[in-house]
Design a protein around this nucleic acid. Structure first.
Length: 761
DNA sequence: CTTATTGGGCTTTTT
DNA sequence: GCCCAATAAG
């Protein structure tokens, strides 16, 4: 029996709804947790409650998240809350848990014991090679699209052998690639991300012992970000829980922003049907944002239909109005952000209190440029991550090849990196041999070196290098082995010779890899402490490679200290900042042109909702009247979503009245915006003009888009040779003035205006 | 085989 | 406008 004192810290700090969720009897629950309503808190406290009050063993708990970050945060917070050791508890990502099962049951899953994981990049490369082997052209069958199709099939748990031929040629070809791709994976002993989930699902569904074992074990299944589960993940959860396990799912349909990668919000409704007795608990009290920000968010999201329904509230104050800034262009917009940032930083803000959110990554470039000039330190999230870097993947491919010679993906990557005289022709020959004899590239190279002509010697050296390295490293600790490999394969010299500061960074990354390997070396003292049949024992190399595949690591850009945070709206989900700037709030950008085209506005609206609710105290929105998109200046209109934000929440700022908008493309921003309208952001403007009413325009009639030669942007023109077209942009002035025209038949051309002989239509 | 050049493409992203 | 990948030239 637990005494009262034990449970106080578990519930004392919770509001009634949170308390209801945490202390609910062990039955199915769906927690609709609004933004900033303490979702993670409820999940963590629920697990702690089950263990300390309901006397549930940590072994009986399965807690699933989407990201490694969320999983480790959850584990850490539970550990802080209770004294019971939870080392044996399965807390992890869908993929991490699937992987764990497959390591334990590799035989039943039909895998080889030392299977490796293919990342998204590797997968596309492999699909590409399969396409080539099937004589299907890259053009007609874009590898990325084919890969996407294969993954979509896997997410619906469809195997090629189950797919009926509907007499559709395209379908037939797709199935052909899918089949060949699967064979290639099996032959190489690799699985892609979707395959991890699919195999784990299949053994849980089809293997009675495995099913019984996990159902007996996992009495409590808890899922975070439930609105992001895809069909396969849901099916797996269902088959895991069976009718003995209880589901505790936490999610927010209003924050469903990943339907394009397979997430199915409908799973929230299905849960209620599939798990009888599921009670829904709503968390609507928000602890993050001001009343004004919540009002804006609520107003916006109420325009969506098919919501499960929720209204955020706070018992805090209204706070400040949301500032909306109408900028001339993206440089002016960035200046506005930098100016406001500087003002805030003079006050009580640290750099890291500020976040700049945008719809697409391309928008970060201009912001970066301006922030550098303003000497404001920043950090961009969402670049290349550590284990995705070229040099790191090179080194890892060698490690994988040492581990398994039949790993063709790694063979292809390493064989001529660094260059050792094994070119495309040789590899083409080798692939043909391997295809014909049905063996891996490695075996083919071993057996048929005589058929490789002039490169046979080089190939022989490569094979020997791998064999020698294997012998030399087999008894070394992993970090030493990695170090030796990087030196002996010539990778280090290869990158040393590369010029530029990039090379420097690459060498540092290789060193970083060596020290990362060190943390996977077995520590003989701690290892055998608790041998659990439910914990796979991985050799250091496998553990290291798995870590690299499943946790691609923090992205390395910039110093980790006090910085302004730049990221996409998608990347911001789950985070919060005292001050948030959302830039580029324009039709065509946000909502994106494609979303408008396809009528997918609800998800874009949710994305805006996510963005707004990231802000604690201050929120700035901005849009540009003109923006360069894919190198072409485009006139934008404020986002349709702005009209949906209650007018009283917003006050609008404009560049100082009376200053004309600069002529389109008359000057490049560097020189153009420096003089004319610098400091526009801090200028007076006129507040109070609420979003929703027509926005006053400072444009002087007729000046809009007027370029050299009297032509206007978007004007229809005729060229003696190219025919009719539309003006896309102007560049420069005087004799050198250029004009970019999109012709109806001749494509887009850049012409010198003086010679173009254009006639306006 | 390496290096320079051209051409296409282009939301969002975790594992 | 920028980045990648596929081609052409060295």
């Amino acid at each position: 029996m637990q005494d009262i004192a034990d449970i106080t810290p578990l519930v004392a700090s919770l509001n009634p709804a949170q308390k209801e969720a945490v202390t609910a009897p062990p039955e199915h629950r769906l927690v609709l947790a609004g933004a900033g309503s303490g979702k993670t808190r409820v999940l963590v406290h629920r697990i702690a409650w089950l263990i300390t009050v309901e006397n549930v063993s940590p072994l009986s708990v399965l807690a699933v998240t989407f990201t490694n970050k969320a999983a480790s945060e959850m584990r850490g917070r539970i550990e802080q809350l209770i004294t019971v050791p939870i080392r044996s508890m399965w807390v992890g990502t869908f993929h991490g848990i699937a992987h764990r099962m497959l390591r334990l049951h590799w035989k039943e899953a039909g895998l080889v014991q030392n299977f490796q994981i293919l990342d998204a990049d590797d997968q596309v490369r492999l699909v590409k090679r399969v396409l080539k082997a099937l004589d299907m052209s890259d053009e007609q069958w874009p590898p990325k699209a084919v890969t996407h199709w294969i993954n979509a099939q896997k997410e619906e748990a469809r195997r090629p052998q189950h797919m009926s031929d509907l007499g559709d040629y395209t379908q037939r070809q797709y199935v052909r690639v899918y089949t060949a791709y699967e064979e290639a994976c099996t032959k190489s002993g690799v699985v892609d991300f979707a395959e991890l989930l699919l195999r784990a699902f299949e053994i849980t569904r089809d293997n009675p012992e495995i099913q019984a074992h996990y159902r007996r074990r996992f009495r409590h299944v808890l899922v975070d970000e439930f609105q992001d589960t895809n069909t396969l993940q849901y099916a797996w959860l269902k088959v895991l829980a069976g009718d003995t396990g209880t589901m505790f799912a936490v999610g927010d349909d209003d924050q469903s922003i990943y339907s394009w990668r397979g997430a199915r919000v409908e799973n929230m409704v299905r849960l209620e049907k599939d798990f009888p007795g599921t009670e829904v608990i709503r968390l609507e009290q928000n602890y993050r944002s001001t009343g004004t920000i919540l009002k804006a968010a609520n107003g916006l999201i109420s325009k969506n239909t098919n919501r499960l329904g929720k209204n955020l509230w706070t018992d805090g104050g209204d706070g400040e109005q949301i500032q909306l800034y109408a900028s001339y262009n993206e440089y002016d917009e960035a200046e506005f952000v930098a100016n406001r940032a500087r003002e805030l930083l003079d006050g009580r803000c640290r750099y890291s209190d500020l976040a700049i959110l945008y719809r697409s990554n391309a928008q970060s470039r201009v912001l970066e440029e301006i922030l550098i000039r303003a000497r404001i330190p920043y950090r961009i999230y969402g670049g290349l991550r550590f284990f995705e870097r070229q040099e790191i993947k090179d080194a890892l491919a060698y490690l994988r090849l040492l581990h398994n010679r039949d790993d063709d993906t790694s063979f292809e990557r390493t064989v001529n990196t660094p260059a050792r005289g094994i070119g495309a022709t040789t590899m083409e020959k080798l692939r043909e041999i391997s295809r014909a004899s049905g063996v891996s590239l490695w075996m083919a190279a071993k057996n048929a070196s005589s058929q490789l002509g002039r490169s046979a010697g080089n190939m022989g050296q490569f094979l020997k290098l791998i064999d020698d390295l294997h012998a030399e490293t087999r008894d070394l600790p992993l970090s030493k082995a990695t170090e030796l490999l990087i030196a002996r394969t010539g990778l280090r010299d290869h990158y040393r010779k590369e010029k530029g500061e990039q090379a420097e960074a690459r060498l540092e990354n290789l060193d970083e890899l060596i020290s990362a390997a060190r943390s996977f070396e077995v520590d003989p003292g701690a290892a055998s402490a608790a041998e659990n049949p439910d914990e796979p024992v991985l050799d250091p190399l496998t553990a290291f490679l798995t870590h690299a595949a499943l946790e691609s690591g923090e992205e390395q850009a910039g110093p980790g200290e006090d910085c302004v945070q730049l990221m996409t709206l998608h990347a911001a989900k789950g985070l919060e900042f005292p001050v948030v700037f959302i830039v580029g709030v324009e039709n065509g950008l946000f909502p994106s042109a494609r979303a408008i085209d396809e009528g997918n506005l609800e998800e874009e609206r949710r994305l805006f909702y996510v963005g707004i609710t990231r802000a604690r105290r201050k929120l700035y929105l901005s849009y540009a009247e003109v923006r360069r998109v894919h190198g072409v200046e485009q006139i934008g209109a404020p986002s349709m979503f702005l009209k949906e934000v209650p007018a009283e929440c917003v006050s609008e700022t404009r560049p100082r009245a009376g200053i004309l908008r600069p002529g389109f493309g008359a000057r490049e921003p560097q020189s153009g915006y420096g003089g004319g309208y610098r400091g526009a952001g801090s200028g007076g403007g006129y507040g109070g003009s609420a979003a929703g009413r027509p926005l006053p325009r400072t444009v002087v009639a007729g000046s809009s888009g007027l370029g050299p030669g009297g032509f206007r942007l978007g004007q229809r023109v005729e060229h003696p040779k190219f025919g009719e077209g539309t003006i896309l942009s102007f560049d420069g002035d005087g004799d050198r003035a250029q004009i970019e025209v999109k012709f109806r038949d001749a494509g887009t051309k850049r012409l010198v205006l003086g010679f173009a002989n254009l006639r306006g239509l």
